[in-house]
Design a protein around this nucleic acid. Structure first.
Length: 889
DNA sequence: GCATCATGCAA
DNA sequence: TATTGCATGATGC
């Protein structure tokens, strides 16, 4: 043994916790609500420390029991804030991690972690062993000697300061022997060590440079003049008590010696399982990679390993492919592996096929040119199981090929069981539902710019085949769960059919008018240039207007405008702040206009240009398994956030046009979320208003303000409350929104809940349901889990409550339009209509309709939307047509 | 090259 | 200190 590492467990844990627990932060936690942020950061820190160790390591902890220091000084560590519950809960987890990682840990009643570390460090040092100590507590600096280096963690945990006798001298001009005396003289508010009042670091260093020790200082106490001398003489006892308190006991009676600290060899899989339990995916991946690298060293192979317990057959020619299709007419799982997430332009890397017993990797270029295989895909009699059916369907559409009869999709099933899987990959989803061992994508293909097929082909052949086998193996379990949760219909009658609708929409795409696009681009460029000049002129210098930092400096330092809110990195320059400043300086209106135009230019003009395909269309991708509420989302480009609220922005919609001889038809649900609320909460007066076809915001205003004639301001305020209620609003935010005092806002809310008392009841009931069950559900039994609702952190619990109230409303509205889409698509297909659904924007559908079907569709589309779901209030729609999207008002 | 922040667009 | 999203440019590692 030549080296020993000692870690102050409590101190590192504190740092780990507070590195991510700034006020207002959402702490990392598992889906069951177990906090993991400190564990995660602790493991990261330990990983760094372990890189520097040589096999001997120990982590020391404090105990909750009082120590000798408390006996000597009752006030020791008094006044310290209690450890937050979220951190306390994680201590056992950190200890469990250390066990699993084979790292020795120790705590001892009556002693602090400092004492354990000090004793072991000095023992080792006396035997000429090099010691590294890790902590964030400066007290430990007194341990520094020729063999002992102390590393202090800094705030962000990213850097360490290390102290040797030399560096201590450089920093304080004191020897390491004087560190105890330094601390004793200065005191330490965090441990409630008194020190000598009035003596801080500067004075303490000066005194020690002259007198070396506290003892010697008091020998010469009478030489010191002035107030300082008085203080020193008066507080002799405090100084000695402080010295006693800060002195680490380097002779603690430990039940083992420094020699018995060797790291134990461990089963990596245990540790991986532990991280999986805590849903610490990054750590799982890192451990898996480390493990692989070790194996790679052991086996001295030129590549990563393949899994010997998994077998599959390689199908690389037509004969074999014909054979297996001939032999397998039973249901099988099929997986298409793509080179990138955007399947509109992805390459096909491979196909996996499995019936649970036999699993195959099929060469994609063979498959796509093999008629037997293509017939198999489009055979309506043979069931197939997939993971992300829509991707396969769209890819095949681009290649003019078909696939039919998907009776199970693992991605959609997993999403219905747990809507928070949205951003996870195949492997993580698999590990949530089974213990099947399957590599992470990045282990096989690498990540970021380096992503690509590995040189060792077997590696990805196996990976792709394995995915197919996993789909098959998990099918029954997932279906069972869905059945238990009454969600089978949601999968089979809504989500899987919807995949086909969305595939058709994405593949159809939306035509772009290039001339209009270029024209708007030029107009915007010119206007932005002019604005830039005006802004620079007003500012007296050029700077990057798009940089909130630089803009903040100009506005609030150079021009001395009154700053409003701050962000955590500096001044806020958002539109609300600018709005308040707009009369203070002529630069402000220019900046506001610049912001608006720059947004339109970069996000909509440039952004959308980059997504146009060679057919002059944009082909978005609707993510069907992402949002926690059941809504869709749209990417590349996002066609669900095209501007509409300002005329300036709305013009962007002129870019999107119907094909020749076609019209765009837009139909949207009116007030669908309020109608859903009226239905599920059984809100009497709200239902009446809907029944009478009233302007809902107006009638709310009439009731809230006790008036017959509603001013436009009153209507606007009532509308804000109607919206706010759906989101679980608080008085403070409503006040911000409608520019009244929080008191008035609270009054509005109270009045509102008096008028619609069932809403209040609904909210209470929903929160109660979520608290008991951990989830809420929609009309069609879609679930959203809300672990935060049982959090002890106020803000998180409140967030949980708002989600509990909002998710069923937003989610049910999503259910309804999804059903409408499936119904409408089916009608169009069965009746051989040429009209096509091309977009969905949460409560509206946009179709591309040939001229000859226009009149029919104006009737049909709203009709189908209205009767998608039967509620106790009617669903109403409005409908518009135009040659471009702008004309759909 | 990648992650994070501030900002702003939609329902 | 209102719900759900996505894309952007700037910035820092």
């Amino acid at each position: 043994m030549e080296h020993l590492t000692l870690v102050d467990g409590n101190s590192v844990m504190f740092r780990a916790y507070y590195a991510t627990a700034y006020p207002g932060a959402v702490l990392m936690q598992t889906s069951q609500g177990v906090y993991t942020n400190a564990v995660f950061a602790f493991v990261n820190m330990m990983d760094k420390i372990l890189e520097q160790t040589n096999g001997h390591i120990l982590v020391a902890f404090d105990t909750a029991h009082p120590t000798k220091r408390h006996e000597k000084y009752q006030e020791y560590k008094a006044g310290r804030a209690a450890m937050p519950e979220e951190l306390a809960q994680q201590i056992p987890l950190v200890k469990k991690y250390l066990d699993k990682a084979g790292i020795k840990q120790h705590e001892q009643i009556g002693y602090e972690a400092d004492d354990i570390i000090g004793t072991l460090a000095k023992e080792a040092s006396q035997n000429n062993i090099k010691v590294d100590v890790y902590s964030s507590d400066r007290d430990l600096l007194q341990l520094v000697d020729q063999n002992i280096t102390v590393h202090l963690l800094k705030k962000g945990m990213k850097e360490l300061d290390h102290y040797t006798p030399e560096s201590l001298y450089e920093k304080y001009e004191l020897t390491h022997h004087q560190m105890i005396d330094l601390k004793a003289l200065m005191g330490d508010p965090s441990d409630n060590i008194p020190g000598i009042p009035g003596v801080g670091e500067k004075t303490a260093i000066k005194l020690l440079k002259e007198y070396e020790t506290i003892e010697n200082l008091y020998v010469h106490q009478d030489e010191i003049k002035g107030k300082m001398g008085e203080k020193i003489r008066e507080n002799k006892e405090l100084a000695y008590l402080s010295k006693d308190l800060v002195t680490i006991n380097v002779e603690s009676p430990l039940p083992f010696s420094y020699l018995e600290t060797e790291k134990i060899k461990i089963e990596t899989s245990d540790l991986i399982d532990f991280f999986k339990e805590l849903e610490l995916k990054q750590l799982v991946v890192r451990m898996a990679n480390q493990n692989q690298n070790t194996l790679f060293k052991d086996e001295e192979k030129s590549d990563k390993k393949t899994d010997k317990s998994f077998s599959y057959d390689l199908i690389l020619n037509d004969e074999k492919l014909n054979d297996i299709i001939f032999n397998h007419q039973e249901p099988m799982s099929i997986h298409f592996e793509f080179s990138e997430p955007n399947y509109h332009k992805a390459e096909l890397w491979g196909i996996g096929l499995s019936n649970g017993e036999n699993t195959y990797f099929i060469d994609p270029s063979i498959a796509l040119n093999n008629q037997t295989f293509l017939n198999y895909l489009k055979n309506k009699e043979i069931e197939k199981y997939t993971f992300d059916y829509k991707a396969i369907k769209v890819f095949l559409m681009w290649h003019k090929k078909a696939i039919h009869t998907i009776s199970f999709d693992m991605l959609l099933a997993a999403y219905l069981i747990k809507s928070s899987i949205g951003k996870e990959d195949f492997t993580t989803i698999t590990s949530l539902f089974s213990s099947i061992d399957i590599s992470y994508e990045e282990q096989i293909y690498g990540k970021g710019a380096k992503k690509g097929l590995p040189e060792n082909k077997e590696l990805y052949y196996e990976h792709i085949a394995k995915k197919a086998s996993v789909i098959y193996k998990l099918k029954d379990d997932l279906l069972e769960t869905l059945k238990d949760q009454n969600q089978l219909e949601l999968l089979q009658k809504v989500e899987i059919p919807l995949s086909e609708v969305l595939a058709s929409m994405e593949f159809s795409g939306l035509l772009v008018d290039n001339k209009e696009l270029l024209n708007q681009k030029e107009v915007l460029e010119k206007r932005i240039n002019v604005l830039e000049e005006s802004i620079y002129k007003e500012a007296g210098e050029t700077f990057n207007i798009s940089s909130p930092k630089q803009l903040g400096d100009i506005l609030f330092e150079k021009l001395n405008l009154s700053q409003g809110k701050k962000t955590k990195t500096g001044y806020s320059t958002n539109v609300e702040v600018l709005e308040k400043l707009k009369d203070e300086h002529p630069i402000i209106p220019y900046i506001m206009e610049y912001r608006q135009l720059a947004k339109l230019y970069s996000t909509y003009i440039i952004g959308i240009s980059q997504s146009i395909f060679s057919d002059n269309k944009v082909h978005t991708i609707f993510n069907q398994a992402l949002t926690t509420t059941g809504r869709l989302s749209s990417i590349e480009p996002n066609l669900q956030n095209i501007p509409i609220r300002t005329e300036e922005g709305r013009k962007i919609r002129k870019i999107f046009v119907a094909e020749k001889n076609h019209y765009l038809l837009g139909a949207d649900y009116s007030q669908i979320e309020l109608r859903v609320l009226a239905d599920i909460a059984n809100v009497k007066h709200l239902k009446e208003s809907f029944l009478n076809n009233e302007d809902i915001h107006k009638s709310t205003a009439q009731k809230v303000f006790h008036v017959t004639d509603v001013t436009s301001e009153q209507r606007r305020q009532a509308k804000a409350v109607n919206f706010g209620i759906i989101y679980g609003i608080g008085a403070w935010s409503l006040a911000e929104d409608i520019h009244v005092s929080p008191k008035e806002a609270q009054m509005f809310i109270d009045r509102y809940l008096e008028i619609y008392p069932e809403i209040k009841q609904y909210m209470q009931d929903t929160v109660e349901f979520a608290t008991e069950n951990g989830y809420v559900k929609t009309l069609m039994n879609r679930r959203r889990y809300i672990p935060e609702i049982n959090s002890k952190v106020f803000m998180q619990k409140e967030f949980g409550k708002r989600n509990a109230m909002n998710a069923p409303i937003q989610g049910s509205a999503a259910d309804i339009i999804k059903v409408a889409m499936v119904d409408l698509f089916k009608y169009l297909e069965e009746n051989d209509k040429k009209s096509k659904i091309i977009l969905q924007v949460h409560d509206e559908l946009i179709l591309e309709v040939p001229e000859e079907e226009l009149e029919e569709m104006k009737e049909l589309v709203p009709a189908i939307m209205k009767k998608a779901v039967k509620l106790t209030v009617s669903l109403e729609t409005s409908c518009d047509v135009g040659k471009n999207w702008y004309e759909l008002k």
